[in-house]
Amino acid sequence: MSPTAKPSPSRAAESIAAWRVDPQVVAVELVDVSFSYDVRPVLRGITMTIPRGKIVAIMGGSGCGKTTILRLIGGQLRPQSGQVRVGGLSVPDLEPDALYDLRRKYGMLFQFGALFTDMSVFENIAFPMREHTELPEELIRDLVLMKLQAVGLRGAAYLMPAELSGGMARRVALARAIALDPMLVMYDEPFAGLDPISLGIIGQLIRRLNDALSITSVVVTHDVYESLKIVDYLYFVSEGRIVASGTPAEVRASSDPFVRQFVDGAPDGPVPFHYPASSYREELFADVD
């Protein structure tokens, strides 16, 4: 199938099935992708490959377009140019039904969990099962408890989201993301705002679940230290372009100025400390009407 052909829902389902059994199919592929919000360019010619079964981190400063990449993979946004392929399917060309078929194979962890606040922890995890399967309630109960056990929160099954700490909410959201045994899990800033213990727990869970369930993971983050411990490959994005990439060992040894600034946490460098502005002297001494 040509990458730009519009697959029908049934063909999409076939492709998704092929993705599960064919190890040669690349999980996610972005080819020369550009995207703008109105006239503001966010991504400029991004090309990246995410192999099956690996954890790949997309790193960069705030507002560099990391989350936009996830939204493009999820089909929530369409690129202005370039190709976004998941399991060999061209995501922007999918009809709505086919896109929804594909999304059933996704799991996504949002930055602050995005738990449904009117449902308990149990109901949150049961939600995708009830929406997409005809499983009996007894089986759903067992599956939910298994997912909660995997993230260590079986005891919190009947708490409401408002009663959870930030780290617990993130773990519940992770349990919900894997509720339907997805093939691809996307993590949007999974480490943001967590204490060191929760941060370590989430990092280990991402690695363990990825290996245990043979899924592919895309982690958007700016937490270098935690990412280097768990991911297989990293892409660095700055101003909408990929400026560096490599394995954790390559990144640690890299002398690339951007990578060094990012890894060392230097306030100034290729990413300037100051937002672009006119001359400081001119602005200070300018006449104010």
Binding site: G74, D101, R103, Q111, L115, F127
Partner: peptide, 21 residues
């Protein structure tokens, strides 16, 4: 608030149409 806290986006990513649900 559901939109602000990304609950609607989460639903979309779970292949559940927020307009229907």
């Amino acid at each position: 608030l559901m939109k602000t806290t990304e609950q609607l986006a989460a639903m979309e990513m779970m292949a559940v149409d927020p307009v229907a649900r």
